[in-house]
Amino acid sequence: MLSYLANPQRFMGFSAWAAPLFAVLAFVLFAVGLPWALFYSPADYQQGETVRIMYVHVPAAWWAMGVYAFMGGASFVGLVWRHVLADIAARAAAPVGAVFAGVCLVTGSLWGAPTWGTWWEWDGRLTSMLALFIIYLGYLALWSAVEDEEKAARLAAILCLVGLINLPIIKFSVDWWSTLHQPASIMRSGGSAIDPSMMGPLLTMAGAFLALFGALTLYNMRAAIFRRRVEAAELRGAGA
């Protein structure tokens, strides 16, 4: 499948119907998941209604990490096989992942206000997410700072892979740090003690985020390919 799509021509054909399909899927899943999560799921016996932030916060956190893993895979393919489409895919996914991480941070902060009584708590998970968010920003900034697009792609791919190796280390050290400084946290977001009645809306929302990621990334990739074609045509025009 991957090698089939490696041809940009075939990719354009595939994405022409896949991108809208993902968009519709995302719309449907959000249309189901949001009301389910916000109105028809049980309130938490401890946190009451505020637990509903979780249905946005947790999927955003999952896919902020998932998107980075996707970028790591694409970067690897781009570096090793020098494949243009893999470069474009990594670049196209990055802003989506950055927004997911940003959404996770904002909702985490909002969630913290009623639960912890503060707008920002240096909780281990939130701190790791902040590090991931900054890594996203660095990745995007490097892309835009290097003028030669091919070179930018390879350098960013190296950076992405270095980040991929470092993320577990950062996660581990932040966890070590947070147990050192705050032994008893009131609440851990996510966790294993989730009521089964919450799983339905949570997974629906996770699916909605995934479909949204698919749609946005495919549209971004199409835009990048169109832009490259226009630039190539202009260069040919200028050369002739």
């Binding site: 900054i134 950076l159 980040g163 950062i170 050290s173």
Partner: peptide, 17 residues
């Protein structure tokens, strides 16, 4: 500034320990 942005998150583990 770009170097700082890129490198600072990776400074987290040594800073912590």
């Amino acid at each position: 500034v770009l170097i700082a942005l890129i490198v600072l998150p990776f400074f987290a583990p040594p800073i912590i320990f």
